[in-house]
């Protein structure tokens, strides 16, 4: 990845989508705001609205750029949503990458660089999830929306992926919204912790 980029804050004001009401959060660069809540509370939907994948009301901006100033794809190039379950659409892994990822990125996630030449059907779900994280770095985002990024991983690699993410976020100075439900993980990674209940977002830590 390239050097340090000065990113703006990710700001969400009076967001309304589905039964979510008046969701207001500001995430400064380099901070991780965790969101937890029961399943069905609208956590993923909130991230989808921030990535502009669903119709919504309210103002969302990154630095001085409002969501509506950019086209959908331009906005999503900057504000990158990484879904809980990654999808793959070509036969081979490498075809999914715009540029061949740096081998150091792969080894940091305990992946062998031979994996890029493999058919997608040979991958385990854990490998897919880790490769999807690397894939999401191209084109380089300016903010991250993580939807339970370690949910599909076994206990061992969960920690290493978490550390890798923390490292990247520190290096790249991204503002991050992170949907999580593991309280210990939240304690480890969160700058702030929000709880989503009955359509309202409340700060709990």
């Amino acid at each position: 990845m390239e050097g340090f980029v000065s990113n703006g804050s990710l700001s969400i004001r009076q967001l309304e989508i589905g039964f979510l009401r008046d969701v207001t959060v500001t995430v400064p660069p380099g901070e991780i705001h965790c969101i937890s809540g029961k399943s069905g509370s609208g956590k993923s939907r909130l991230l989808r609205a921030v990535a502009d994948l669903e119709q919504h009301n309210g103002q969302i901006s990154l630095g001085n750029t409002r969501q509506t100033d950019l086209s959908g794809p331009q906005w999503r190039k900057r504000v990158r949503l990484i879904p809980a379950q990654s999808e793959w659409w070509y036969d081979n892994v490498l075809e999914h990458f715009q540029v061949e990822p740096d081998p150091s990125l792969l080894s940091a996630l305990e992946l062998n660089s031979d994996i890029l030449k493999q058919p997608v059907s040979y991958l385990s779900s854990g490998e897919k999830q880790r490769l999807a994280l690397i894939r999401s770095l191209y084109p380089q985002p300016q903010a991250l929306l993580l939807d339970e990024p370690t949910a599909n991983l076994d206990e061992g690699s969960r920690k290493s992926v978490e550390n890798w993410l923390l490292n990247m976020i520190r290096q790249q100075h991204w503002p991050v919204l992170w949907v999580a439900h593991d309280q210990e993980q939240i304690n480890r990674v969160a700058s702030h912790h929000w709880d989503l209940e009955n359509g309202c977002l409340t700060l709990t830590g």
Binding site: L53, P73, K77, R80, I82, S86, E87
Partner: peptide, 16 residues
């Protein structure tokens, strides 16, 4: 059938 594939591609900044 492939709606989540399409959306995953959109998330990466691809055009429709």
């Amino acid at each position: 059938q492939q709606r989540s594939v399409i959306e995953n591609r959109l998330m990466l900044g691809q055009t429709w």
